[in-house]
């Protein structure tokens, strides 16, 4: 199989380039893209990428494989390889630190902007803040986000205005706290999001939904926030 991977070492390379490898893929089982990266690293130890859990939990190996963002560790070759060729690039839209490693600072800044923690002004109860099973259910499909950035770096609105549009991942998390029955800062949270960029820059392109490796739906969460903002405005 031919594997083409994006290489860039700012200390040594004038500009990024693609490096091709011919790789014998051991038959018998469907390898994951991360396995391929490990095989490449045996051939060329300078190939650089992030990974940790290798089972789709930590969110560190988001990359772009044959044009689509995803986690290398849970993306089987059978799903992405076309015509015996695999092209691996870093997540688009973020500065490259080296090879497949991108600088996630902007992404985390946007996450920080939505105050990703429970806010509740009441006195804490003795044991814990209780929640009915129905209220708890409202957080399903929201809390599972692993902040891999596959969605936000697939979103054109995030590419063009990463400093103003929060992006699908951050907005999914914003809604996770807005929807939480134990959180009392809904109004303040909405007030932070009412400008024309933070939420309203979403154009419903739904790239985020099509790439999320956890099967989450940021567009739906954004729709909920937008409806709340509209209700609040009229």
């Amino acid at each position: 199989m031919q594997v083409s991977i994006y290489r860039y070492n700012p200390d040594a390379d004038a500009s990024p380039y693609m490096q091709d490898f011919d790789l014998e893929i051991p038959g018998g089982k469907d390898l994951m893209v991360l396995d391929v990266l490990e095989l490449l690293k045996e051939q060329d130890p300078s190939v650089t990428y992030r990974r940790s859990c290798r089972e789709g939990v930590c969110g560190s190996d988001g990359v772009n494989m044959n044009g689509k963002n995803g986690l290398a560790c849970i993306t089987p070759l059978s799903e992405v390889v076309r015509g015996r060729k695999l092209i691996i690039k870093p997540l688009p839209g973020l500065p490259v630190i080296r090879d497949l490693i991108v600088d996630m600072e902007q992404f985390y800044n946007n996450y920080e902007r939505i105050n990703p923690y429970l806010i509740n002004g009441d006195d804490p109860p003795e044991m814990e803040r209780l929640q009915s099973p129905e209220d708890r259910e409202k957080l399903d499909g929201l809390y599972e986000c692993i902040l891999c950035a596959c969605c936000s770096t697939a979103c054109p609105s995030f590419w063009w205005n990463p400093d103003k549009f929060i992006g699908p991942s951050g907005l999914l998390q914003a809604y996770r706290f807005i929807a939480d029955s134990r959180d009392t800062a809904t109004e303040e949270r909405l007030a932070e999001l009412e400008d024309p960029f933070s939420v309203f820059r979403c154009k419903g392109i739904m790239n985020c939904v099509s790439v999320c490796p956890k099967g989450l739906n940021p567009t739906r969460a954004i729709g909920h926030i937008r409806n709340m903002l509209l209700k609040r405005a009229v």
Binding site: D195, F197, A233, V234
Partner: peptide
């Protein structure tokens, strides 16, 4: 809560917010 930083491009109509642009 943190204060938003000033936008270079603010909004389509001088006083409008995201919701009113969307509604318009």
């Amino acid at each position: 809560m943190k204060k938003k930083n000033g936008f270079i491009l603010k909004n389509a109509f001088y006083l409008s917010g995201g919701a009113s642009d969307w509604l318009i």
